[in-house]
Write a protein that binds this DNA or RNA. Structure first.
Lengths: 188, 188
DNA sequence: ACAGCCATGTAACTTGTTACATGATTTT
DNA sequence: AAAATCATGTAACAAGTTACATGGCTGT
């Protein structure tokens, strides 16, 4: 729903047209989350279908302009006042991947972790490089820092996982798959 | 794609049936990411359509069992060896929300931040409570810790945002919206 | 003339997600 | 007997996403 709400929120600043919405969105989130223009138009159509925006004719340059409705304003207000639910956070692909890597036999968890850490550290360096580009918009700057904080946490978590997996391997041996035909344990 | 890959990876342990796949998935990710059984069946159908799994008849109890194909095994191997791309991470709704909150006039960023911090801290306490439940599966335990690390990072980021927003407010006054009719600044 | 950006759209598709139907088996 | 759980599915839809078509305008 992020894109949907973002466009709605942007329209609260005043009527805007599709292409403009994309550039304003990308101005705030930088190159991190590029937004396909097509999606702006599909989203606008769906917002209009749901009565949250309405067409507002054309501006002086002939742009097709949309305006937020009262229902739309309500929606944005609710969005801003309601915290993002952390009780059921979005599925984290990396967490799922590691959870399965420690489970499925024949997967080298150590390698998975190391590869991921390299990738994350590389991303972290990209962020640092971006930060040095002086004239940073406040919004874009905050987004960038959220990425930095998240990536740092990810690296720490990966280190933590590595340690725990090593410890678990030390306790329960089972180093070789060694042709011990897989016994199907029931999960009930 | 998380669910898709997760089911595929689970099937590498040997043929399984739909209901079983759900319980095995939830055993590893705890109650964090509940998986609707229906989705298991739709996903299995789509995996079969794409040639990554195939029906394997019924087991002794009459369960409809699926088995991973060679193409499916390749897919899983690639998934495990390819790090999750942090160059274009999934859109973070909270980051987007704050980026827009500091932009759209009339939104009280301070309140947004405080509410979110409360919610995140509450989630953090839930995680701590869950951790105390002794017999934790390794996978589920790692997932839980990833949530903890992420939530802690989020709180730190929110604190950071609060400080930056306060500083920005001190530099540029603009405290009241004060009926100064919105002047549309062009974004070009 | 041509390349490239601005601008508006549409068709097609993917994954995720839920609500519902249906029946078997198990527990109370 | 009733309630709960196991088990398999289907229909329908939402949001995200991209590839493509189309045309105007601008700079070289």
């Amino acid at each position: 729903m992020s894109v949907r709400f973002a466009l709605l929120a942007l329209l609260e600043q005043g009527p805007k047209y599709g292409y403009q919405l994309r550039s304003e969105f990308e101005q705030r989130t930088g190159s991190t989350w590029p937004l396909n223009v097509g999606q702006v138009y599909t989203t606008l159509t769906r917002l209009e279908r749901d009565g949250l925006v309405e067409g507002a004719g054309s501006d002086e340059q002939g742009h097709v302009v949309y305006r937020v409705t009262d229902a739309g304003r309500d929606e944005v207000a609710t969005w801003f006042t309601t915290p993002v639910a952390r009780t059921q956070p979005p599925r984290d692909e990396l967490a799922i991947k590691l959870a399965l890597a420690v489970t499925v036999p024949g997967v080298d968890v150590g390698t998975v972790i190391q590869q991921q850490r390299s990738a994350t550290i590389r991303a972290l360096q990209d962020y640092t490089r971006l930060k040095r580009q002086e004239p940073l918009d406040l919004a874009w700057s905050l987004v960038l820092e959220s990425l930095v904080f998240a990536a740092e946490a990810e690296v720490r978590w990966l280190d933590h996982c590595e340690a725990r997996v090593r410890r678990a391997a030390a306790e329960a041996p089972a180093p070789e798959p060694s042709r011990t035909d897989e016994k199907q344990e029931t999960t009930r």
